[in-house]
Simulated scan of single mutants.
Amino acid sequence: MNVWHVYARYYNFGDYALGVGVRNLFLKYYNSEILFKLKDVHSLVFDENTVDQLNSSADMLLVGGGGLIHGFAGDKWMLKIPDRLIPKIRVPLIIYGVGYNQFRGEGDIHPRIVENIRRLQEHCLSFSVRNDGSREELLKLGVDLPEVPDPGFFVDGDYARPPIEGDFVIIQLANDMKHARGFDDESLLSHLSDICRYLLGKGYKIVLCPHVRTDDILGRQLIANMGNPEGLTSWEWFDIIRDECTLKGLSYYKHAKMVIGMRGHAQICPAGMLTPVITLGNHRKHLDLIKKQNLPDHYVEVGDPQLSDKVIMMFNDILANYQSIKDSYGNSLAHLLETSSLFIRNLAEISGKNNLP
């Protein structure tokens, strides 16, 4: 079975990772004999030729996950299928676990995007959104889509431990859209320096895990500001961003003692591998996810004037209750996996494509 898998592949590690989660789920619960052809939603523009190529070479168009519902170009969103071409897609179309990703202060998506989503919903075998409040945001605009767990929860594997001696903590920064995320460099770097000094003083190694190029710039600035202390390092973004290194990157999240993260998939992927997370909130979706899934509430706004003190307090709370917190993650994950498997098996049954053993 040949499947075009369309998702965000524009040099963001979190997006690469959730692509792994989508394929894990569909291989296990939809059809065990899928051959995926990977397509970047940023560069793929559907015109007549693209639709003809899709219809002649693929058995299904699978879109997702990721925060694709974002009005980054006025009246267009990241999936660029014009209304007039939607009826010409003859293969089953599944849009799976995508997110409503408007940042604070951006307002709602354009009415033309809403209309395009409605038309796609009518044509799709299934159109679902991820479990981070996206459904509720779209309901406000009159669009009712089913909700599924973010596929980033399902990226676990038998990953070898990265070459780091002793316990280590990941710090994952976000350094784009600063006007919407609610922080300034000087204040954030000061708090992070305090956090790093505390962790290093307790004997932990620290690994910075930039997901995009701009994250790496901020992380390098943190290291320089602290005088390049022993035990504080960063993974090599130019290495980790390659497809063949995605699982290598996930191994850091799997084997970390804890994650202190700003991006959504630094919150989701480690939780799916039972690694406790402290979320530095900077987007609506971060807190909505915690509330909806009843995850442990280790959350602080990134612009909080007591950021470092609160993170250190949460760090010690997690250590004091480490196994019970991992058990809580495990209980949540079991429910999320059951929900996902039932949803995808139902899609397979509807489409008649389920040839699982």
Rank of each mutant, 00 (worst) to 15 (best):
K39R: 14
D52T: 14
L232C: 11
D304G: 05
R104L: 14
I268P: 04
P270A: 10
L18A: 03
D309S: 13
E48W: 03
S308F: 04
L342K: 15
Y96G: 05
I350S: 14
L62S: 06
G231V: 02
L199C: 12
E244I: 03
V277Q: 00
D47A: 10
G303D: 01
D297M: 12
L61P: 02
P210H: 08
C269H: 10
G157E: 00
Y252N: 07
L54D: 10
P151F: 13
K257V: 07
V143F: 06
V259K: 03
R213Y: 00
H286K: 09
R9P: 05
L274F: 10
T50A: 15
I223N: 05
K310F: 06
L356G: 11
A271I: 09
R119F: 02
L250P: 13
G330V: 08
F343R: 06
N354G: 15
L68T: 03
M1F: 14
E137M: 12
F343W: 13
P87A: 01
V148P: 06
L342R: 12
S57Q: 15
L125F: 08
G107L: 08
R161C: 10
L188C: 03
L289Q: 14
K285D: 09
D75Y: 07
V98Y: 04
G264F: 15
L337S: 01
E349W: 11
L218W: 00
L192H: 10
G281E: 14
K39C: 09
F46H: 08
L218C: 04
S56D: 15
G231A: 12
D327I: 03
C209S: 12
T214K: 14
W77D: 03
D75Q: 08
V311S: 01
E33D: 15
G272Y: 06
F72N: 09
E137N: 11
A8M: 09
Q121C: 00
P357F: 07
Y100G: 04
L120E: 01
L307G: 11
L79E: 04
D59Y: 00
I344S: 00
R284V: 03
